[in-house]
Simulated assay, not measured.
Amino acid sequence: MRPAEPGDLPALVDLCLAARSESTMGAQLCSDDGDRLRDQLGALLASPGGQLLVGLLDGEPAGLLLGQLVGPGPFTDLVSLNLEAIYVAPRARRRGLGHALMAGALEVAELGGATEVYAAPLPGARGMQRFFVRLGFAPAAAHRVVSTSALQRRLVGETAGAQSRRASGRGLEDLIARRRQVRAAARGEAVDPGSVQDAGQRSRPAITMQVNRAVQTLRESESSTTIS
């Protein structure tokens, strides 16, 4: 095991493609475009904190480990090593190459000041799950994922719903304001011009008719009481 070098990239691309073809969820593992994979691996190799280890069998690349040192950050002072992928070709399995790659990852973690090592094997990768369990890895958190298109649909729906609720709230406020105007006019009280401007701008002629009827009813009632 040793850190990968730029000259290892073609062999590492072949290993990534082999891992993709072997996995039942290959599309989630990596791209099937060799040129794109080479660019991605090169970017990881050149990025700060990027870790790319290669496992050798008889001097030939037969396994790889991709990782990233993360932290400290805005919400934590801790540093961790996140393992993105580990793969050993079938011809090199059961020879300790996987353990050698993990020993290399441990060395990277210690040199980088990482206090924890995280791994996220793909669902359905039972062999890799068992491998990590044997090395003491335990569940740490539940990740959730959503496609960008589904998230966009949900956000549009939530926004439309919020606008509808706000419009409904404004309609209720207008109704309450109009009722207050009717009661005030029926009692012969002066109506606040500001409230009339705010709520009355949206009133209809039917509201004016309701006010006139209420005032007329009140006057008729007062007149009748005086005569008696």
Rank of each mutant, 00 (worst) to 15 (best):
R126Y: 13
F75G: 12
E84A: 14
R91G: 11
D77S: 15
G96C: 05
L97S: 05
V117R: 03
L135D: 04
A100S: 14
R126N: 14
G124F: 13
A119C: 11
F131K: 06
T76K: 03
L122W: 10
R95Y: 09
V108L: 08
A120D: 13
A138T: 13
Y118C: 01
F75H: 14
P90L: 13
G127R: 15
T76M: 00
R134W: 04
I86C: 03
Q129P: 01
G96A: 08
A85N: 09
G127Q: 14
E107W: 00
F75P: 02
L81N: 04
L81G: 02
S80P: 00
A119R: 04
G136S: 13
L81Q: 05
A89D: 10
P74Y: 07
A100Y: 00
I86D: 05
F132D: 03
G127M: 11
E84K: 11
R134S: 07
P123H: 09
R94A: 15
R95I: 01
E107M: 10
E110A: 15
V88A: 09
E107V: 03
A85P: 04
S80R: 07
V133P: 00
R93T: 09
V79H: 02
G127C: 10
M102P: 03
P121S: 08
R94T: 09
P123M: 09
P123F: 10
